[in-house]
Nucleic acid binder design. Structure first.
Length: 364
DNA sequence: TAGTATT
């Protein structure tokens, strides 16, 4: 059964600890200032499954200098790298860049996802395993209603209600993530088996399954690897993930863009391009406004697939865009769809010209 | 009756 998220009403998390609080170091501690990254360290959620560490760094590096960043992955099993857990952390050097990243990249649509960028809470065992699974919710209960019911037990970080994708009707199932695990525990005690006001049936509240004990995910992995193989033949694992996501995109996303038949032998771009680390398909974007910046290019091309790099060409003295830029995409078919869809696209009062960059090394 | 937010 297909479900979708009814809404997200994300809570913008800010750190509880005021930055002005100064921790006095004892004589046994280092005389360095205590590390306070509460104004520079961000958590990024709802990243596309196929986004790599390099793309992640490239996207957030376009805002400002990064002190460190990490795409969180499943524990490595055997010789394979663990798959992305769909979130990551970015710690900027300058707090202003962290703020800018929230303002410009929060809500950015990448493929089928809308990413969320917010300040990371200080890491602590007390905030882990604070996610609840709620079932038996009355159909008319909205996300806001559910939050009101649960908020008496603590600070809610995220909440969602699953709905039938066709009818839009609530499936009576939702999630509530609290700031602290102890708050989640209290909510279970207080609400599990209880009838919400006016409801005829009691709700069930329990801890959500942990991603580590995955059975459905292993099944999904198997499904899309075998599905992708039918279309692509024996390709690299990572390539197969890209291909399945293509199929999902055609099914769910980018509906407003003209669909293009997926060519099944076009994912080898990175392999064919002489092994350079910059391998990919370079796209030329013309007729950008003087005010255009990298985030515009990410927003335009991100929905079509894996983007490894974007660059706006600027005048050296004025720092204004000279009217063009470049985008590098990993997969030929995604690049081709982006070009076919965005060439002639009207951006403000300008009509974009988008094509593969014409240079010898990128021709077949 | 299941999505994925703490390195």
């Amino acid at each position: 059964m297909v479900t979708q998220i009814i809404s997200t009403m994300e809570t913008q998390v800010s750190n509880g600890g005021p930055a002005s609080t100064v921790i006095q170091n004892g004589p046994t501690m280092s005389n360095n200032c205590p590390t306070d990254d509460s104004k520079t360290n961000l958590i990024v959620n709802y990243l596309p499954q196929n986004m790599t560490q390099e793309e992640f760094k490239s996207l957030f590096g376009s805002i400002g200098e990064i002190e460190s960043c990490k795409l969180v992955r499943d524990k490595i099993t055997g010789t394979e790298k663990g798959q992305s857990l769909g979130y990551g952390f970015v710690n900027y050097v300058d707090p202003n860049d962290a703020d800018k990243a929230i303002n410009t990249l929060n809500g950015l649509k990448l493929q089928t996802k809308t990413i969320k960028v917010s300040y990371a809470r200080p890491s602590s065992a007390s905030i882990r395993d604070a996610n609840l699974y709620v079932s038996g919710l009355p159909k008319p209960m909205s996300q806001k209603d559910m939050e009101q019911l649960f908020s008496q037990y603590g600070r809610i970080i995220t909440s969602r209600i699953l709905v039938d994708q066709v009818t839009g009707v609530s499936r009576g199932v939702g999630f509530i993530r609290f700031d602290k695990r102890i708050e989640a525990e209290e909510a279970i005690k207080g609400l599990n088996g209880q009838k919400p006001l006016g409801a005829s049936e009691p709700i069930t509240v329990k801890f959500a399954n942990n991603p580590s004990q995955k059975t459905g995910q292993a099944l999904l992995t198997h499904l899309y690897q075998t599905t992708a193989r039918r279309y692509t033949g024996p390709l690299h694992h990572q390539t197969q993930r890209f291909r399945l996501d293509n199929l999902l995109n055609v099914a769910y996303g980018v509906k407003r863009f003209s669909p293009i038949t997926i060519d099944s032998m076009t994912s080898l771009a990175g392999v064919n391009l002489t092994g350079a680390s910059t391998a990919g398909w370079c796209i030329f974007v013309y007729n950008l406004s003087p005010e255009a910046d990298e985030s515009v290019l990410w927003q335009l091309f991100g929905p079509f697939g894996a983007v490894t790099n974007v660059k706006v060409i600027r005048d050296f003295t004025t720092n204004k865009c000279k009217g063009f830029g470049f985008v590098t995409m990993t997969n030929y078919d995604e690049a081709a769809m982006a070009i076919a869809s965005l060439n002639g696209y009207r951006l403000g009062d300008r009509v974009l010209q988008v094509s593969f960059k014409t240079s010898k090394q990128h021709k077949a």
